[in-house]
């Protein structure tokens, strides 16, 4: 089957599909040709694994990267390296489709997968609504529309509930989200993190920065005077460490009022379904009095 497909590419061009094949467009606008049903998939990033599970297609995943650790069902799956991509191990698992993340995977990987006839579908989550859009799209792609829709509605309800609690709050603390506490990596323009902060009732101070992952200067933070600093440093993060790395921040409002918090990194650094719980956790930090669990 695969050889025939390759021959098609070589001699006829990609326009003529085999019977039953479908053509879909992925989040990068690429045209992806898929077999009629898909039973075996592999994922190239933890975030797309989580999205595929949310779409009800977890049982179709036959292998995940060594970075994957969620949901617990991935523990028993075969693993492959992603630094660099271990193509041989992935091809050996014989997937009918490879799911990739626009945030972390390289477009160059496509060439190698397509040379062995495995289609690659890229998922891009750059806003909070993108999460449920991606879940629905994956449900349709993998034939699990019903489960995907159910989960998507559940997540949207949860977001709506949070929004109802925070939308009318007049006090919206200026919030800085940091990825690293020494070298100040942060989220710039066009990231879902600003949606999360906004929904949680805050105002993200890096949302207009022109690069995607800017490294902030200490003076930017001093001048922007964030009222809350949160970072993907882990829940046990000792907030005094931040000031020991950045001694001049002793007069930043967030530091003065003791509002520096470490967060569990995954719900913020993995653009998947857990962004929703991440937004709730953030809201409880920003507005402890107004936001309580539903």
């Amino acid at each position: 089957m695969r050889q025939v497909y390759l021959l098609c590419l070589l001699f006829i061009g990609c326009s003529s599909n085999l019977p039953g094949e479908r053509t879909v467009e992925d989040d990068l606008g690429r045209t992806v040709v898929l077999p009629p049903t898909i039973e075996r998939i592999t994922t190239l990033a933890p975030s797309v694994t989580e999205l595929a599970f949310a779409a009800g297609a977890g049982s179709k995943i036959v292998g995940v990267s060594t970075f994957d650790d969620y949901p617990p069902a991935v523990d028993t799956l075969p693993r492959y390296d992603m630094l660099p991509t271990d193509f041989e191990a992935i091809v050996a698992l014989d997937p009918e489709l490879v799911l990739a993340s626009e945030q972390v995977n390289s477009l160059k990987d496509i060439d190698i997968f397509s040379s062995v006839g495995i289609p690659v579908y890229f998922v891009a989550v750059n806003t909070l609504p993108d999460v449920t859009r991606a879940i629905r799209a994956l449900g349709e792609l993998l034939g699990t529309t019903e489960a995907a829709t159910r989960r998507a509605i559940q997540l949207e309800d949860s977001l709506a509930q949070l929004s109802a609690l925070t939308v009318s709050l007049s006090e919206r603390p200026r919030t800085l989200f940091l990825i690293d506490d020494v070298t100040l990596y942060a989220f710039g323009q066009g990231s879902y993190i600003h949606d999360m902060i906004d929904l949680a009732g805050g105002h993200s101070i890096t949302q207009t920065m022109t690069t995607r992952f800017p490294v902030l200067t200490d003076e930017f933070v001093l001048d922007a005077r964030p009222e809350v600093i949160v970072g993907s440093f882990g829940l046990s993060y000792d907030a005094t460490k931040l000031v020991s790395h950045h001694a001049t921040w002793d007069i930043v409002p967030a530091v003065l009022s003791g509002r520096v918090y470490g967060l569990h990194p995954d719900p913020y650094l993995r653009p998947g379904p857990r962004l929703v719980s991440g937004a709730w956790a953030l809201a409880k930090i920003l507005h402890p009095d107004a936001v309580i669990d539903p």
């Binding site: 710039g188 800017p214 490294v215 902030l216 200067t217």
Partner: peptide, 10 residues
């Protein structure tokens, strides 16, 4: 390196 990206650095 400081000035090329506002607020950020290379």
């Amino acid at each position: 390196a400081r000035a090329i990206l506002p607020g950020a650095q290379l």
